[in-house]
């Protein structure tokens, strides 16, 4: 057995495949995740993000390919992998009938702490996560943000070398989301490697050192957020017109000036386009003004996940049926 795991890579995977019946939920995923970094899986529901994470966390056995996690072979050293990784699933990964403190004591005891150590560790974590007031409340009475934090706290009772976070902020309000982000940043600053999945480009952009865009079980793009954005253009130009009847005219004009395809939004007065730099945006605005087309809203934003998908796959990111 290899007790001297290689230092630099936290995860190395080659050609991972998982089939559910006929469907290839994960269809040949290669990965190289550096230690001490945040790696983001970006993709819509059913893209294969969760399935990949579950394989890497030893919860599913791959139907093809191989992987080492922290230097341990996924297939033959699953127990070693389990000792060093931690998983925060998409759904409640704590016992909702128990209190926050009891949940942390439960995990602490299972990891090998004495009763007192487990209680002290639980109290410390609840304090650090701003949950001390809810320590003696059943988790089922927690708000969404609190629940997410207790989930993560349960995952780091023993500091893992690698933490999997499956959609850590889906459904959270902005304040709770920021709290989770700050927890992730602190984790990484203390040396833990984090692999997270998200449906939001902004989240991947904020947290991840590298991002893999996943669609239909395959990685269709990979790189730093800067590299991905450069390949996608600076962002998305959003225009809303005062009079919807001006839209065909605006579309024609923008297509000419920007030399790119114009997307007609479902809002009859809105349109958008991919642009590569800010000068294009000002060109567009002055052209519209000159043509006497009244604009109520004009913004240059980061591409949304939909736009990234459109760009990468030539089709919108449809929500496929979620795979178990």
């Amino acid at each position: 057995m290899n007790d001297q795991p290689q230092k630099e890579l936290a995860i190395k995977a080659a050609g991972l495949v998982k089939k559910f019946g006929e469907e290839r939920a994960v269809d040949g995923v290669d990965l190289a995740v550096q230690r001490g970094t945040v790696y983001g899986f970006l993709g819509p529901n059913g893209a294969g993000k969760t399935t990949t994470i579950r394989m890497l966390a030893t919860l599913l056995s791959p139907d093809g390919g191989s992987a080492t996690v922290l230097g341990y072979d996924l297939a033959t050293e699953a127990d070693k992998v389990r000792s060093h990784v931690s998983l925060t699933g998409q759904f409640a990964s704590v016992d909702e009938d128990l209190t926050g403190l009891e949940n942390l004591i439960l995990i602490g005891r299972l990891m090998g702490y004495t009763r007192k150590e487990a209680r002290d560790r639980g109290t410390e974590l609840l304090h650090a996560f701003g949950l001390e007031d809810a320590a003696r409340r059943q988790v089922k009475k927690y708000s969404g943000g609190m629940r997410r934090r207790i989930d993560i706290a349960a995952s780091i009772v023993v500091t893992p070398d690698l933490l999997f976070l499956d959609e850590p902020t889906t459904g959270l309000d902005p304040r709770s989301r920021n709290q989770v982000w700050s927890i992730v940043r602190t984790l990484v600053s203390t040396g833990t490697t984090v692999l997270l999945t998200t449906q939001y480009l902004e989240e991947a952009d904020q947290l991840a050192d590298r991002i893999a865009v996943i669609d239909r079980g395959r990685i269709i793009a990979e790189g730093t957020s800067g590299e991905l954005k450069a390949s996608l253009g600076t962002g998305s130009l959003q225009v809303r017109l005062l009079h919807p009847e001006d839209r065909p005219r605006a579309e024609q004009l923008l297509a000419e000036k920007l030399n790119t395809s114009i997307i007609l939004e479902t809002d009859p007065s809105a349109l958008s386009a991919q642009v590569s730099d800010t000068t294009q945006a000002s060109t567009a605005l002055s052209a519209l003004t000159k043509a006497n087309i009244e604009v109520t809203d004009f913004s240059l934003g980061q591409p949304s996940l939909d736009e990234v998908f459109l760009q990468l796959t030539g089709k919108p990111a449809e929500e496929e049926e979620a795979v178990k």
Binding site: M111, G112, R121, H127, I156, V158, T159, T186, T190, G191
Partner: peptide, 11 residues
């Protein structure tokens, strides 16, 4: 938070 995160020694 920083202290708690790094405080999880492996028993």
């Amino acid at each position: 938070l920083r202290r708690a995160i790094s405080g999880g020694a492996r028993p």
